[in-house]
Design a protein around this nucleic acid. Structure first.
Lengths: 342, 342
DNA sequence: CTGAAAGCGCTTACAG
DNA sequence: CTGAAAGCGCTTACAG
């Protein structure tokens, strides 16, 4: 099959290629009648602008890039990214933008990828996630002048537009709820420490516990995998005075924690309360369903895509403070067992 | 920042742009010494070929497309796709190919997407998944002449190269195992009926049960979501003579089924055995860990990407029959309760 | 082995 | 409002 080009349309309509371009892109330069005729012919021929030619001629590539800074193995089980991607997709596809995905092993790899995307003119803009406290990526992106939106706290976004939800509020809500239930020994199975949002959560957890007089509050770090979450949970539950409540930084580890409780013969929530973060449908499927800090990640993605699209158009973009995750109490939280109450 | 172009290299090296192109692409036409000099300069300048220009000049776009034929909401929880994607990525990225992702609402939308990708010259080839029994997509792809590899049974691939694993073997293995344990009332919570591999599994399940004299064998269809899996499980377990073993077409539904058993006060595996299909790490995390039909989906993706890459080079590509999923017995299967044994 | 030139299919100033 | 032309940065026959 031969692809129809603008020259074909121009010939058919008896106008110049330039006129076709103006008509197709809805710009001034052609009369309404000519425009209509051109559009009709384009439609009839099933014309689609060649994206390479368009990009080369200085227009946009109509592609947005997303580097996934996690090892492929982790990605498969982490519902967060897929939910984010479906949100991004939902917005991008209505505007005929494609999403270019690539996994990267580490920060250096990611920076290399941005440089490559930039020098190949492959993408019009990028979304950055998993912000670190001092993140080099934002510096590079500003240097390259590649439009970018950060999915993470503005405090680490280095001046790039950012969209985030305030994890401090959510963490405080979770701790207050557990304390209200009567828990005094609370531990947190935290995420990767160098990530900016992990740092925020860790601080919030510590502060909330201190304020409420919880002295036995621990945070243990993990790599977010279920295996690691299980391992840490096992260690915590085998302690002399084991915690009566656990707060997890993602849902996969919370589910793993539930499995470990089961393995140790502890009843959830009678012997142990569990709170998950990032409420994927999984949390509602397990028995008992997990109390979780939930927010609409997909909507977060839609919003992030919108911001990037405006940034790419050159409009000034405000930071967006999305709704924080709120606690959805379900079957995995209850007052602590009698013996451990104050 | 200004991107270095081949003209810059040519000027620096004192040769023509053509010579630079030959040198960079490892083709004949330049002496070894000139080639080395050109490569050194390119490297020093941080040169990267502009992908749009390259695609326009008739070379490849270096992009592979994957349409995701599931509603965004389902994607988030389905580990299968993310595992497949990480496999594809692993292979594509080493060859400097990018993966273009787009969700599509249905078959018509997917066909439209292929036409668009084709007419925009956006991708060099595509991967097709979730094959239907009579799948229109393969016909269209052949018409367009877009290189494609089907991830699914060759029986529905309509002549396109395909990679698949034989679900009949796996299903038979699962049924034989359950029967050997003593189960006589086995039900299957199946996937979307119009998918080719679902049909294969349904037939295999029926045949295996019949051959082993299991008369009470039912398959119930679902849409693969956890919610639907839970609902179907609830209905099955509330029957007069409830099944003592359930086989699920994906792991999410198996986990949902475990939740329902918990909710109904049934012990797994003492009262009910559960077998999951597609053994994501989740299966090992829940309590009890799920017996599952496991295979390396990520490796499947690597292989699929390799096949597509050769197809795009014009090499003839053989269908690949990947290793079938094999049973990994874990804590969710055991002999049926006393009363229900023959 | 090397160079000069045409062309891929668009967009966008620049004249009329 | 419209047309003719240059140019984006590559690749690839075609001469030398």
């Amino acid at each position: 099959m031969k692809r129809p080009t603008m020259a074909d349309i121009a010939r058919e309509a008896g106008v110049s290629k330039g006129a076709v371009s103006y008509a197709l892109n809805g710009r001034a330069g052609v009369s309404d009648e000519t425009r209509r005729r051109i559009l009709a012919i384009a439609d009839q021929l099933g014309f689609r602008a060649n994206s390479a030619a368009r990009a080369l001629a200085g227009a946009q590539a109509k592609v947005v890039g997303l580097a996934l800074p996690r090892p492929p193995a982790t990605l498969g089980v982490e519902p967060f990214f897929m939910e984010l991607i479906s949100g991004l997709e939902a917005e991008l596809s209505t505007r005929s933008y494609a999403l270019l995905l690539q996994t990267v092993p580490d920060e250096t790899g990611e920076i290399g990828l941005y440089r490559r995307w930039w020098s190949e003119s492959r993408v019009d803009g990028v979304l950055v996630c998993d912000l670190r406290v001092h993140d080099q990526r934002v510096t590079i992106l500003r240097e390259l002048g590649l439009p970018a939106v950060v999915i993470g706290p503005p405090s680490s976004a280095g001046g790039l537009a950012s969209i985030w939800s305030d994890d401090q509020i959510s963490m405080t809500e979770a701790v207050e709820y557990l304390v209200a239930l009567g828990h005094r020994r609370i531990a947190r199975v935290g995420g990767i420490p160098r990530l900016a949002h992990t740092a925020i959560r860790t601080r919030a957890f510590g502060e909330a516990c201190e304020r409420l007089g919880i002295t036995e509050a621990t945070t243990v770090s993990t790599d977010y995998t279920g295996e690691n979450g299980a391992q840490v949970t096992r260690a915590l539950l085998c302690r002399q005075a084991r915690p009566t409540a656990l707060v997890y930084d993602n849902d996969i580890m919370a589910i793993a924690g539930l499995g470990v409780a089961h393995e140790l013969g502890l009843r959830v929530p009678a012997d142990l309360s569990i709170v998950a973060w990032d409420d994927s449908p999984l949390c509602r499927l397990v028995g008992p369903p997990l109390t979780a800090l939930s927010r609409d990640i997909s909507a977060h993605g839609v919003q992030a895509a919108r911001m990037l699209l405006s940034a790419m158009e050159g409009s000034p973009v405000e930071d967006v403070h999305d709704e924080p995750a709120h606690l959805s109490p379900r079957g995995s939280t209850a007052p602590p067992p009698q013996g451990s109450r104050p």
